[in-house]
Design a protein around this nucleic acid. Structure first.
Lengths: 204, 204
DNA sequence: CTCGTAGGCGTACAACATACGCTTACGATG
DNA sequence: CATCGTAAGCGTATGTTGTACGCCTACGAG
């Protein structure tokens, strides 16, 4: 009966994501999003309660694109977990600016729940039950979250590593020695190497 | 020759930390900190360039209290790494509100560098070298960062778990089954269980 | 006593999220 | 076709934020 809505939540989320991808996370404001959708600032409040809900929509928009169908059985369960983790990492890595938002709002995302469900299923097939499975799920999530942040907020290569290499060798001998080997490891290798460590330790 | 300074960076950082511990991270503003130290807002800018530097001071204030002396040799290297990780987790856990700040500014903290130096030394003694040590260091850091966030921002017990338990069982059978076991694992167990997984997987 | 330096502060401004109330488009009903 | 209730859309206003700028003043060396 009343006037029909002219915007779907997806369109709103897409507009916000466009702003973020263009201007960075600091560029995300109600005004910027309103301009992106061609409305006035206050018109947005007909669709969301506050800025936090807009952020949640963006996170859902990103995480909702993760493929959560169980990978084909056949390979090892290690490999299947790797596939799931890579899917998540790939989607988030496509929008580096939203990483902090994903971190902040992940626990309200249905996408994460679906992803976790599939991962929990793989753990179950691997023979992990009860407490072991709880711990496996949580520590996998912890690793993935932490590693994605390290990758996008604390650059392995570049200024950070240079600063480490420039440390006084007498006080930081091991760090200096480690920094010398950093260029031998690219981001993918580092991520998968750490993941492999974790999965090996989970073996029953 | 000129007028002497009436504030040390530590006092400034302590004041900011007091504000955060009292009013939360959202309560941290230049005005609030100025009031805490008994100065006008703009007086703070004689000591710091901008808000970011204030946040960095807070992070350094927190991380600077981590004991980075190498633990007594004798036990396994697993145990020594655990000691180091527990020290870090203990300090950060004492100020849960600053977790996001620690995450954002950790790479500029001399405290983290000292901690990493000691950890790298333990890895070296354990026989991890070159690429293996790079990966071990980074993935340990990733796990610790992620786990601390999960612990303080995504509660294992409470509303989040209840929401998971209430999911439709047909669509989320494994999550529902897992949620039923969550109450058997407390935060410390979860954290150390995951850490043990990771360390086991690093074994040469 | 004087004076240059730098600490401290008052004012001002732009950007922000958002509460409130008005106007207007719409479609179901007469 | 005419009417009217509902909700979309928007204009204005408020309070808070970080911080640029310029003034006044406390201080110690000469």
């Amino acid at each position: 009966m009343p006037r029909p809505r002219s915007l779907t939540p997806d369109q709103l989320a897409s507009a916000a994501l466009t702003v973020i991808d263009r201007d960075g996370l600091a560029g995300l404001s109600m005004r910027a999003v309103a301009q992106q959708v061609g409305m006035s600032t206050m018109a947005l409040y007909r669709y969301i309660d506050d800025r936090g809900e807009l952020e949640r929509l963006v996170v859902e928009q990103v995480l909702g694109t993760v493929d959560t169908t169980p990978p084909a059985t056949g390979g090892s369960w290690h490999h299947r977990i790797e596939v799931m983790v890579d899917r998540l990492r790939g989607v988030v890595g496509a929008h580096p600016w939203v990483v902090p938002l994903v971190i902040a709002h992940r626990h309200r995302s249905i996408g994460v729940l679906r992803w976790s469900e599939t991962v929990a299923g793989i753990f179950a097939e691997a023979g992990l039950d009860g407490r072991r499975r709880v711990i496996a799920l949580r520590c996998l999530l912890a690793y993935v979250i932490g590693a994605i942040q390290l990758e996008h907020l604390g650059p392995l290569v570049g200024a950070g590593t240079q600063a480490i290499a420039d440390l006084p060798r007498t006080e930081f001998p091991h760090m200096a020695a480690t920094a010398a080997h950093v260029h031998l490891v690219d981001a993918d290798e580092e991520f998968h190497g750490g993941l492999t460590n974790l999965l090996r330790g989970m073996e029953v």
